[in-house]
Amino acid sequence: MPGFGLTFGFTLSWLGLIVLIPLATILLKAAGMGWQEFVAVGLSPRAIASYRLSFGTAAAAGLVNAVLGLLVAWVLVRYRFPGKRVVSALVDLPFALPTAVAGIALTALYAPNGWIGQFLEPIGIKVAFTPIGIIIALIFVGLPFVVRSVEPVLADLGRDVEEAAATLGASRFQTFNRVIMPAIGPALLTGFALAFARGVGEYGSVIFISGNMPGRTEIAPLLIVTQLEQYDFNGATAIAVVMMLVSFTILLLINGIQAASRRRMGI
């Protein structure tokens, strides 16, 4: 088969040029900082509050998406209803809609005088400019990751396995709990991890609805931007590196859990 030298060479060069070398700069920059300075900025109270907010809201949105994304995937795979094609296409909207557009649209909806906000305001629920608003934005951007991860596995899960459980006397609930859930669990975890990772780094859809109050609704990516606007490149670098380290650790952990469960089943 021809073309290995050409394609492999081009792949490596382009990867190096566009991704690896730029990424290496940030590590270089971080390494160039003194440890003390790194900790002083990267782990300052304001930074820690932003990590807590970013990871916390991303996890919360990921959990909501794991539940409701599973519901959507289930309905799309198992049932027939009019307009299913349109609904299925709509699930990908967050992939296609620019995040800034989503951000201002969500803010307009959940602002105290917005379509949804006007109903929540009187019962004391504030969404816009609170962490709840951030979670809602992250639910929006993360949903397709869960649905698209679970859908194929659910479609692939043979009816016969469920039927087997039923012939053995299992109720529908027991079948779901003990047969279906374990089978789609890894895919659900993958979807959660992808949604979570996306949520931690998300910027465009969040900054409009979050209100950006330091220490309260300031997400980590926004803090990076703030540091940059003040030409504090070391600060921006330190926060970025801490964020990346935590993200990668969590993703590695999730990958590890999955690899272990796959190994156990011998797949």
Binding site: L15, I26, G201
Partner: peptide, 24 residues
């Protein structure tokens, strides 16, 4: 490595180019 940009915050993706090509 090809998938790497997916798991990096867009803001960080911008930051690396500032660190590389910016005035400082």
């Amino acid at each position: 490595l090809i998938d790497l940009p997916f798991s990096i915050s867009p803001v960080v993706s911008g930051l690396i180019f500032v660190l590389l090509f910016g005035a400082n």
